[in-house]
Simulated scan of single mutants.
Amino acid sequence: MKLDSLHALNAERAARRAAVLVTDLDDGSQRLVREIEISTDPLADILSRRLASGKSGLVEAEGRQLFLNVQAPAVRLVLIGAVHISQALCPMAAALDLSVSVIDPRTAFATPERFPEVPLVPLWPDEALAGPLPPLDRYCAVAALTHDPKIDDPGLIAALKAECFYVGALGSRKTHAARVGRLSQAGLSPEQIGRIAAPIGLDIGAVSPAEIAVSILAQIVSTLRVARPHAAKSGVLA
């Protein structure tokens, strides 16, 4: 890798932004395509699919052999609520190499005994996301699971403003309708609120906490891995 490409790639890594290093195997030339530039690149479709998969590899384009070195930030999963669903979700997410943390100001629920080896933040979400936890970004998934608007809503607002790639909330359609009203009053746009997966998870008929956890995790993976158009100006994933 050329030194200037390495410096540029390291800058994107440090900022938790994705990039693809394109190497022409015929002549050895290289160029770095930042995520925000993908939509205007001649290889936009190929780069989008590769970035969605998170995998590097060989491709052929216009009769040339190219190696695409995909660099994407590690995905973080932030759970709002130390509930039974969260207990089931944490080990499943860890098995997929997701970095998981749980926020819940209710210290009776957020205990190491209930969440062994899981980072717990016993603060209100707005406090947790402004301090102990790293800032949310577009490589974060946030799931609000408490059913308590005082806890869930601040986490949802922060996630939507940070353009997290996945934002989900537990509750019925009636519950979500009330939530939409609150979030609208909080100043979020219909487009922002429309990004919330609610009721949360894929519709697999889940009934137990573990089954609901499976449906949520499947929806997160589906959202992450489906290639989407990249906005040239904002770089928004979805």
Score class of each variant (00 low, 15 high):
residue 98 L to G: 12
residue 99 S to G: 09
residue 101 S to V: 04
residue 101 S to N: 05
residue 101 S to M: 06
residue 101 S to D: 03
residue 101 S to K: 01
residue 103 I to E: 04
residue 103 I to M: 06
residue 103 I to Q: 05
residue 103 I to T: 03
residue 103 I to P: 04
residue 104 D to Q: 06
residue 104 D to N: 13
residue 104 D to W: 10
residue 105 P to R: 08
residue 105 P to C: 06
residue 105 P to F: 05
residue 105 P to M: 03
residue 105 P to H: 14
residue 106 R to M: 12
residue 107 T to K: 10
residue 107 T to F: 06
residue 108 A to C: 01
residue 109 F to W: 15
residue 110 A to R: 01
residue 110 A to W: 10
residue 110 A to G: 05
residue 111 T to S: 15
residue 111 T to E: 05
residue 111 T to Q: 13
residue 111 T to W: 13
residue 112 P to C: 10
residue 112 P to Q: 11
residue 112 P to F: 02
residue 113 E to V: 15
residue 113 E to D: 15
residue 114 R to N: 15
residue 114 R to Y: 07
residue 114 R to A: 15
residue 114 R to V: 14
residue 115 F to Y: 09
residue 115 F to T: 04
residue 115 F to C: 07
residue 116 P to G: 01
residue 116 P to R: 02
residue 116 P to E: 09
residue 116 P to K: 04
residue 117 E to S: 10
residue 117 E to F: 05
residue 117 E to G: 00
residue 119 P to I: 01
residue 119 P to M: 03
residue 119 P to C: 05
residue 120 L to M: 12
residue 120 L to Q: 13
residue 121 V to E: 08
residue 121 V to K: 02
residue 123 L to N: 07
residue 123 L to T: 05
residue 123 L to V: 09
residue 123 L to H: 11
residue 124 W to T: 02
residue 124 W to P: 00
residue 125 P to L: 10
residue 126 D to V: 12
residue 127 E to H: 09
residue 127 E to A: 15
residue 128 A to G: 03
residue 129 L to Q: 13
residue 129 L to I: 07
residue 129 L to D: 04
residue 130 A to Y: 07
residue 130 A to R: 14
residue 131 G to Q: 06
residue 131 G to W: 04
residue 131 G to V: 03
residue 132 P to T: 12
residue 132 P to S: 14
residue 133 L to K: 08
residue 133 L to Y: 09
residue 134 P to I: 01
residue 134 P to H: 11
residue 134 P to M: 12
residue 134 P to F: 06
residue 135 P to T: 07
residue 135 P to A: 13
residue 135 P to V: 01
residue 135 P to D: 12
residue 136 L to Y: 02
residue 136 L to N: 08
residue 136 L to M: 08
residue 137 D to Y: 04
residue 137 D to Q: 06
residue 137 D to A: 06
residue 138 R to F: 00
residue 138 R to Q: 14
residue 138 R to G: 12
residue 139 Y to F: 15
residue 139 Y to M: 00
residue 139 Y to C: 01
residue 139 Y to G: 00
residue 139 Y to V: 05
residue 140 C to H: 07
residue 140 C to N: 02
residue 141 A to K: 05
residue 141 A to Y: 03
residue 142 V to M: 00
residue 143 A to W: 04
residue 143 A to T: 12
residue 143 A to N: 11
residue 144 A to F: 13
residue 144 A to H: 09
residue 144 A to Q: 15
residue 144 A to P: 13
residue 145 L to D: 12
residue 146 T to H: 10
residue 146 T to Y: 04
residue 147 H to T: 08
residue 148 D to A: 14
residue 148 D to M: 09
residue 149 P to E: 15
residue 149 P to M: 07
residue 149 P to N: 12
residue 149 P to F: 00
residue 150 K to Y: 11
residue 150 K to G: 12
residue 150 K to T: 15
residue 151 I to K: 05
residue 151 I to S: 08
residue 152 D to G: 10
residue 152 D to F: 09
residue 152 D to Q: 10
residue 152 D to M: 11
residue 153 D to K: 04
residue 153 D to G: 02
residue 153 D to W: 00
residue 154 P to Q: 09
residue 154 P to R: 05
residue 155 G to E: 03
residue 156 L to K: 08
residue 156 L to E: 11
residue 156 L to C: 11
residue 156 L to A: 11
residue 157 I to K: 10
residue 157 I to A: 06
residue 157 I to G: 02
residue 157 I to F: 04
residue 158 A to V: 06
residue 158 A to S: 15
residue 158 A to R: 12
residue 161 K to Q: 15
residue 161 K to H: 11
residue 161 K to Y: 01
residue 161 K to W: 02
residue 161 K to N: 14
residue 161 K to A: 12
